[in-house]
Amino acid sequence: MALDMNGSMSRLPIIDIIIFDCTRLTYIDQNGVETLIDTINTIREYGVHMILASCSQFVYKNLEKNNFFKNFNPRHCYMSVMDAIADLEHNNNDKQ
Score class of each variant (00 low, 15 high):
Ala2Val: 06
Leu3Thr: 07
Asp4Thr: 05
Met5Gly: 12
Ser10Lys: 15
Pro13Gly: 05
Ile17Phe: 13
Ile17Ser: 07
Phe20Cys: 11
Asp21Tyr: 03
Asp21Lys: 00
Cys22Asn: 02
Arg24Val: 04
Asp29Ala: 04
Asp29Gly: 01
Asn31His: 03
Gly32Leu: 08
Glu34Phe: 12
Thr35Pro: 01
Asp38His: 08
Ile40Ala: 09
Thr42Leu: 11
Ile43Gln: 06
Tyr46Ile: 03
Gly47Met: 01
Gly47Lys: 00
Val48Tyr: 02
Ile51Gln: 03
Ser56Ile: 01
Gln57Thr: 11
Val59Gly: 08
Tyr60Glu: 02
Lys61Ser: 14
Glu64Trp: 03
Lys65Ala: 03
Asn66Lys: 10
Asn66His: 12
Asn67Met: 12
Asn67Pro: 05
Phe69Asp: 00
Phe69Ile: 06
Asn73His: 06
Asn73Ser: 13
Pro74Thr: 05
Cys77Asn: 04
Met79Tyr: 11
Met79Trp: 08
Ser80Cys: 04
Val81Ser: 02
Val81Met: 06
Met82Thr: 11
Met82Glu: 12
Ala86Tyr: 01
Asp87Cys: 09
Leu88Gly: 14
Leu88Trp: 05
Glu89Val: 15
His90Cys: 09
Asn92Leu: 14
Asn92Arg: 04
Asn93His: 03
Asn93Ile: 06
Asn93Cys: 02
Lys95Arg: 08
Gln96Lys: 14
